[in-house]
Amino acid sequence: MQYRRVGSSGLKVSAIGLGSWLTYGTAQEQKAANACIQKAFESGINFFDTANAYNRGAGEEAIGLALKPYDRTSYVLSTKVFFPMGDGPNDRGLSRKHIMEQCEASLRRLGVDYIDLYYCHRYDEETPTEETLRAFDDLITQGKILYGGISEWSAAQINEAAATQEKYNLHKIISNQPIYNMFERYIEDEVVPVSEQAGIGQIVFSPLAQGILTGKYKPGAQLPQGSRAANQEVNGIINSYLKEDVLKCVQQLNDLANKLDLSLAQLSLAWVLRLPNVSSALIGASKPEQIEENIRAVDVVLSQEVIEEIEQILDSVKGFAPLR
């Protein structure tokens, strides 16, 4: 396994991390979570990501139970705060009240004394950034979290956070968690340059575009039984990828991967990890063998020629925008 620093911090995470969105506590059983986390540890993965909003806390509980047998110092654990966790007016967002209460709730659900990396799950237009960052700073001082992060913040919002931290001498945000894959590349133009300047590393989610970049979905073919797209409970986002031009593009990428003696998933992950600012790519796995396949991507170095060939293939879907 390869380990990378998160931004300019001293924290090191495995280049492939294991996420739990739409996987543990929702569509899959606890048994699958335990098996996948065991395989992840055996493979050198030390980074595990969840969020309080994943099935209203069930995702955190599943991850916490699966991690219980392992030494707490042996892994890096991240979770998040922002989305509604109740029906009250203060049960959402990034107010000091919601952050402090949800951090305590996450610690209980996870069964740990501290969270390594705590994320603002989205930007809160209704709360001053200073209030949010001071709450995170206090949690770090209290030892309840070790580092702060943000998720899906714009370049302007990252700049605002960096300036606020500088002005008030607050602990620095070390990570941004955006979506990033061959089809969704908005971070390349502004977010990555601004993050590099602020010492923030990207820990990206959906590097395989909800499973589209595994090659399992074919143009004009029926959805594979048991796949995420076939699951009516969790298929909302993936369905926006299921377009003829996207699937044809995936076929071309799969042909290129075969030529390189790689799986499409390995090619796609290696492509994501080519950026120095990417600290880790979060995969979702319901079976241990998926982890075994995906981690091989860390040893793949794509030549400039291959990267250019990928760009030519992706050119046909440049205007693609998924429904969100």
Score class of each variant (00 low, 15 high):
255 D>Q: 15
255 D>W: 07
24 Y>F: 15
205 F>E: 10
71 D>Q: 07
282 L>F: 03
110 L>F: 13
284 G>T: 04
251 Q>P: 03
145 I>Q: 08
263 S>M: 11
5 R>F: 11
255 D>L: 13
311 E>C: 04
274 R>I: 02
317 V>W: 08
12 K>E: 07
53 A>W: 12
220 G>C: 02
224 P>Y: 09
204 V>K: 09
134 R>P: 12
118 Y>E: 10
173 I>G: 02
305 E>W: 00
46 N>Y: 03
278 V>E: 06
267 L>P: 11
279 S>E: 00
114 Y>S: 14
87 D>E: 13
138 D>H: 12
235 N>Q: 15
314 L>K: 01
191 V>Q: 14
168 Y>H: 12
146 L>Q: 14
122 R>P: 08
54 Y>F: 13
177 Q>C: 00
137 D>H: 11
72 R>N: 06
287 K>W: 03
60 E>T: 07
98 H>T: 03
21 W>A: 07
43 S>M: 11
236 G>K: 15
310 I>A: 07
214 T>E: 04
81 V>Y: 08
218 K>V: 06
314 L>E: 06
281 A>G: 01
233 E>V: 14
157 Q>I: 00
121 H>W: 08
276 P>I: 00
103 C>D: 06
151 S>D: 03
127 T>F: 11
252 Q>A: 14
256 L>H: 13
167 K>M: 12
205 F>Y: 15
217 Y>F: 03
3 Y>N: 00
27 A>H: 06
4 R>Y: 04
7 G>E: 09
43 S>K: 05
73 T>Q: 15
155 A>L: 09
297 A>E: 08
240 S>D: 08
14 S>D: 05
269 L>M: 13
108 R>Q: 12
306 V>L: 00
235 N>P: 11
234 V>F: 15
47 F>H: 09
295 I>G: 00
3 Y>F: 12
26 T>E: 14
20 S>A: 12
172 K>N: 06
172 K>F: 03
180 Y>T: 06
151 S>M: 01
173 I>P: 04
245 D>T: 15
250 V>H: 00
282 L>C: 01
143 G>F: 05
143 G>V: 12
304 Q>P: 00
281 A>K: 02
129 T>K: 14
115 I>Y: 02
130 E>A: 12
101 E>T: 13
245 D>P: 13
226 G>W: 07
102 Q>S: 14
246 V>G: 07
324 R>W: 07
149 G>T: 05
79 T>H: 04
298 V>P: 03
